[in-house]
Design a protein around this nucleic acid. Structure first.
Lengths: 185, 185
DNA sequence: GCCACCATGTAATCGGTTACATGATTAA
DNA sequence: TTAATCATGTAACCGATTACATGGTGGC
């Protein structure tokens, strides 16, 4: 019975529930929060907003600011129902990882010890770069990232991300060391 | 100058270098090794094998087994060059994660404490399930997963995967506990 | 005889990014 | 005045999965 949400539809409903109102705000919210594990582009967001409106999960209203065309969306009762149903779903859902550095590491036997170590260094640098991005977000995350106080789980999610990236950086440091100057090609 | 490898092209060259010979064997190899961070389907593999052959990176030869049509591929000198160039590349390349349970966790403020805890439990169960798959692969991984001995990095990659999943499972256990019976909606 | 496995392939569809286009407002 | 930001959108393209189709071989 209940409509199956598209991947981008899922993050749209969630962000609207958190207080985002326009497609632009949804995109902004994604960029400062879920983008490392659930991205969304305008090319998906705007058509999907109209699709969800057509399906009765959202209501749209014109809300121009000065001369700027602007459309605000909010969840209908049905939209809220579908969102909650998805959030209480019983299965794992999508879990995909695509990691080119890890693939190159996997094929490390084909290259020199130096090249292999360089891949691990890149993995560490990448984790560290992401950690910096995360730490920039940390202060705001306690207060609620969307000007609506009392959000607890976005903050916990950020802590998860930080912990995960720290684990990877630690693994990379150890592996760089263990690969250091061992004479294997 | 050097051709840019498509995503599936990358894993094809790598698997051929590791000893896979046919499209079928490449797919098998992917399923028991890289599938959690770099998948490939027949719908991509077979057309891409022909494309790479046309581009001069692979050489194909008929190698039927009894009455079974069968095509063996191997890297040409150019194919090897392109593979090595990719493996020594200086940038991060693709790094994508799509994690629906984490997205649901992120939106956890919208549901009951029980529902939120259920999401974390699912994350733990998922890690544990993946860990089981990894541990089934562990014995073979020391010897080389493709009947060609002396592969070191596939084994290290598996250790990475195990460590990562253990970290996530640990995080989930702690988080389940910290969410336990705290009276927040 | 049947099932599991080996082996190759295609067509439809999907979800997504990228690049582009338009235009208003605000702060330097 | 000009750059950054707010705001919405589309078209081309890409990479991938899914479902389907075909057919041989080997073991129970």
């Amino acid at each position: 019975m209940s409509i199956t949400l598209t991947p981008t539809g899922r993050v749209i409903l969630g962000m609207l529930q958190l207080g985002a109102k326009t497609g632009y705000e949804i995109k902004q919210a994604v960029e400062v929060s879920t983008r490392f594990f659930w991205g969304a582009s305008y090319g998906q967001i705007y058509p999907e907003l109209r699709r969800l409106t057509g399906a009765g999960l959202l209501a749209a209203s014109d809300a121009p600011r000065g001369g700027v065309r602007r459309t605000e969306y909010h969840l209908t009762a049905e939209g809220e129902r579908v969102l909650k149903a998805w959030l209480s779903d019983d299965d794992f859902g999508i879990f995909e990882i695509r990691d080119e550095l890890l693939l190159r590491f996997f094929f490390g036997d084909a290259v020199s010890s130096d090249d292999a170590r360089a891949v691990v260094r890149k993995m560490r640098e990448r984790s560290e770069w992401i950690l910096e991005r995360f730490r920039e977000l940390e202060p705001g995350s306690r207060e609620g990232f969307i000007e609506d106080a009392g959000e607890r789980f976005p903050h916990l999610t950020l802590q998860y991300g930080i912990g995960l990236m720290e684990w990877i950086a630690g693994w990379a440091r150890e592996t760089e060391r263990s690969l250091d100057g061992d004479g294997l090609s």
